[in-house]
């Protein structure tokens, strides 16, 4: 696989203004800046703050990727939005769990359930 395509994101707009961003591949020190730019654009330029991250296609997440997630959560919440996780694979959940992410982020078994959390 070429270096540039190790990590990919797919952004889908869903009803109720919730933006679903699917993460695929490997989110590590090399690809984290791309992810960061995407979040920055989404949150600061497009002012979209209701975000569900679809972890299902993600193979690997490194500390740099986790840093990006942590970096935006406060900003999003200050604006009345949230970042919720859906369909987190077990291995990635383990990493998130070690770092205490489940305490900060709401994590749902599926993307639809994560979206549903915005309604309630």
């Amino acid at each position: 696989m070429a270096q540039g395509s190790r990590f990919a994101t797919t952004v889908t707009d869903t009803p109720q203004g919730v933006l679903v961003i699917a993460l695929a591949g490997q989110l590590d020190a090399h690809t984290a800046p791309d992810f960061e730019r995407l979040l920055e654009k989404t949150i600061r330029e497009d002012t979209r703050t209701k975000i569900v991250l679809d972890f299902e296609p993600l193979e690997y997440i490194a500390s740099a990727g986790l840093g990006v997630l942590m970096g935006f959560i406060e900003e999003v919440r200050e604006q009345g939005g949230d970042i919720k996780f859906g369909a987190v694979p077990e291995k990635i959940y383990h990493v998130l769990d070690l770092l205490g992410f489940p305490i900060v982020f709401q994590i749902a078994p599926t993307v639809d359930e994560a979206r549903g959390m915005f309604a309630s």
Binding site: L66, L98, G100, I103, V104
Partner: peptide, 19 residues
């Protein structure tokens, strides 16, 4: 052994200390 605890530098002390 995996007691609860969050990474350092993530959250305010109120949450961190609690966890």
């Amino acid at each position: 052994f995996q007691p609860k605890g969050m990474g350092i530098g993530f959250v305010r002390k109120e949450i961190f200390n609690n966890v």
